[in-house]
Each structure stands twice: as C-alpha cells, then as structure tokens.
C-alpha cells in the first residue's frame, strides 16, 4: 500500500545498509578476537573507510531531503514555492480535510461539515486526507502507523500532514507518541476507513467516541 511519506524504497535501502554495517562490525570484531592470522591495517585503509562513510552521509542526507520534499510538495499542492507550514491554499487538492485538536488526553476530529468526533476520523478507502492539527495545552504527537507518518505538535503552532487512506476498510490506530502527562497511554484514536464515509454514523466506535451529527 502506498504510504504518506512514500519511503518504502529508500527505507528498505537504509535498513539494508544499517544491517550490513552492524554485521560488518560484528564480523570484524569476532575475527579480531578469534582468527589466527594477525593484521595491522594502514592509515590508507582507515581513510578509505571514512571516505565510504562520508559518501553514505551525503547519500542519506540527499535521500531523506528528497523523500520529505516530495511529500511536502504534495502538501503544498497549489503553492509549491512555499516552504514550511501549509498555507491553506491547496486544500482542494485533497479529497478530505479534517481539523484535529490534540488535547490532554485525546484527539477531536472536525470534518468539513463542522461535525466533531472524539477519537475517530472517518474516511473513505484510498482517498487523500489532509489533517490540520493544533494542540491547545502541551506538546503532543500524532502518529498513524498504517500511513507511516509521525508529527510532533507544539502548542504554539499549527501543523499539517496528509495521508492516503488504506484501500482496505477497517479501523487503524492513531496514537500520541510524545509524553504529554499521565493520560498519555490512553491518547489513542481510530482512523475509520469505510465506503460510506460521507454519511457515516460513527457512534459504533465504543466508549471513546461520539458523534454530534
């Protein structure tokens, strides 16, 4: 499934690089302890190794910035020259816009009809969703594992992120990942993906949700 950051490829590459460096280090250490043959590396060997590392630093920086810029470009669909926070002019590029209030302790989701739902965001399968997030008390996190995206929300500022909803209908976890007080563990919500999202009744989400519609 396509995720918000679209980083499956680069991420797999970097996981592989990380794993091979770990294995390389371990193997060298084991050989240094157990191998009969002894070896005194030259400085040239170390410089070569460092040169490879510097190459990886440039590659990682380039890849990360590319990935995030591509994501950001979609966020600022109509206003591509604007860096930083979303300015509100490209909202029509998204299928759905949801305002999120993160509070101690929970999330309130306000849809385009000004209907408010606590701890449940209802969306249709496969559509692009823009979340405009604010916090009115302390620093919170906003993490949607299925979309592979995390944001940290500072009470001074508004923060936007977008996702493409999963194609499979169901309930997907939304959680706070920044410690925000004793209720942090309970600060969870659901991304509810259902076909008739536009007219959905969301009072079947258990105790944690209600519906003003």
């Amino acid at each position: 499934m396509e995720n918000a950051l679209g980083i499956w490829g680069p991420q797999a590459t970097f996981m592989a690089i990380t794993a091979s460096f770990t294995v390389l280090g371990m193997v060298m250490l084991i050989l240094a302890i157990l191998m009969k043959r002894r070896w005194k590396p030259t400085y040239a060997f170390e410089f070569g190794f460092i040169a490879v590392m510097i190459g990886l630093v440039f590659y990682a920086d380039w890849s990360s910035v590319n990935t995030y810029s591509a994501y950001q470009k979609d966020l600022n669909a109509e206003e591509r020259s604007v860096a930083g926070n979303y300015t509100g002019e490209g909202e029509e590029a998204f299928d759905r816009v949801i305002t999120v209030i993160a509070f101690q302790w929970g999330f309130a989701f306000i849809n385009e009809n000004d209907e408010i739902a606590r701890n449940a965001a209802v969306v249709a399968p496969g559509e692009t969703v823009l979340f405009k997030i604010v916090s009115n008390d302390v620093i919170h996190g906003f993490n949607i594992p299925v979309a592979q995206i995390t944001a940290e929300i500072d009470p001074d500022e508004k923060r936007e992120l977008w996702i493409r909803a999963p194609d499979e209908p169901g309930k997907y976890l939304i959680q706070c990942v920044n410690y925000c007080g004793v209720g942090h563990s309970q600060m969870k919500a659901w991304l509810v993906v259902q076909d008739d999202a536009a007219t959905a009744q969301i009072d079947n989400m258990g105790d944690n949700s209600n519906d003003n519609a």
Binding site: F14, A60, S64, T67, I149, Y179
Partner: peptide, 28 residues
C-alpha cells in the same frame, strides 16, 4: 561493549534522517 556500540551505533544512521524519523523512529 564494542559489539553493542556497533549494534546501537549503526542504527543511528537511520535515526538521523528526517524521513525515517518521521515514520517509525520518533518516540517509539
């Protein structure tokens, strides 16, 4: 201890990048 610094240190290569940090790394 050297083995563990390799294990923990290599993973920092992922942590440092904003893109994967904004995925599964930050505060998990």
């Amino acid at each position: 201890a050297i083995a563990f610094i390799v294990y923990g240190g290599a993973t920092a290569f992922l942590n440092a990048q904003i893109a994967p940090d904004s995925d599964f790394i930050h505060n998990t």
